[in-house]
Design a protein around this nucleic acid. Structure first.
Length: 282
DNA sequence: CTTATCGCCTGAAGGC
DNA sequence: TGCCTTCAGGCGATAA
């Protein structure tokens, strides 16, 4: 499920394939993916004649920069891009096709149809939703640690939920949150306001370490993820918590346990990640 | 203001 | 075989 490392890998692999391509046609087979503009015909007409100039990323959003527009794409659970010749058959989960002057096509596939696209005029995206509320990017940004500490300790929510909230630090999803908290030796249910400065800094360090390593490995291929060239990531071989239920903890050998936290599968070592008393700030 | 829950989607897997 | 339930989970909308 694309989180920051997967989106970054898609950005890198896709950039080689589409930068410099000029759009001559757009097909939209499932209109609900297009969140802006409201009218799909406007979306198509705006894009015709535009050349792809750059691919950027903020948090889990992929930004396709064109001459006069920025297309903001979120892959959510299962979104994928491929580049294929126009004559290639269209599979049932292809929802949007951008046809290029070169005869190639950029295709957006999404089995669950959760993905979104927002089209903005040049430079308008950063100050509008959905990008406006994206917090510090864990891979690119210099993080204001004091501000993050204040935000986290102002909340009674479980630290796992706080880290999944993209408005504070951006890029973590369910896999990398579990990995980050495992390496930080913090229980996922720990309330934000019980965390010390040292613990918050440790969480930030482990989050950045996990994200950096996963980017180096080309992301994590659990379920369906592949990059724009169809290649799988390798980070699943490095997972310590996510999907490791019943396997011995890599530190203490106690079996990794799985629980439900706000509807999400949550993996942790009950020995290394002790639950602490809410009233104590250690 | 904050936090919790629901709904969107489809396919795989498991129970009976 | 086949039907039903559960799970996968990011995040916007809505409720509390």
């Amino acid at each position: 499920m694309p989180e920051l490392p997967e989106v970054e890998t898609v950005r890198r692999t896709l950039a080689h394939l589409v930068i410099g391509e000029t759009i001559t046609m757009v097909d939209v087979f499932f209109a609900k993916i297009i969140k802006k503009p409201n009218d799909v015909d406007q979306f198509k007409q705006a894009l015709v004649g535009q050349t792809i100039r750059a691919l950027k990323r903020k948090g889990k959003f992929l930004m396709i920069e064109l001459d006069d527009y920025d297309l903001i794409s979120h892959l959510r659970m299962e979104g994928k891009y491929t580049v294929e010749e126009a004559r290639m058959p269209v599979d049932k989960h292809t929802h949007i096709i951008f046809g290029f002057k070169s005869g190639k096509t950029l295709r957006y596939h999404d089995v669950r149809k959760f993905g979104t696209m927002h089209l903005f005029g040049k430079g308008e995206a950063a100050d509008a939703l959905p990008l406006r509320q994206v917090g510090y990017d864990l891979y690119l940004d210099q993080i204001d640690e004091d501000w993050v500490f204040e935000k986290i300790t102002a909340s009674t929510r479980a630290i796992k939920n706080i880290l999944l909230d993209q408005t504070i630090v951006a890029g973590l999803g369910n896999i990398y949150v579990d990995e980050t908290l495992f390496k930080s030796k913090i229980h996922p249910l720990t309330k934000g306001l019980t965390l010390s400065k040292v613990e918050v800094l440790r969480i930030l360090d482990m989050a950045k370490l996990t994200i950096d390593e996963a980017v180096k490995q080309g992301g994590t291929s659990i379920r369906s993820y592949v990059d724009a060239k169809g290649d799988m990531g390798m980070f699943q071989q490095t997972l310590h918590a996510y999907g490791q239920t019943g396997e011995p903890c890599s530190v203490c050998e106690h079996p990794i346990e799985k629980m439900k936290l706000s509807g999400r599968g949550t993996h942790f070592c009950p020995v290394c990640q002790k639950e602490k008393n809410d009233s104590v700030r250690s």
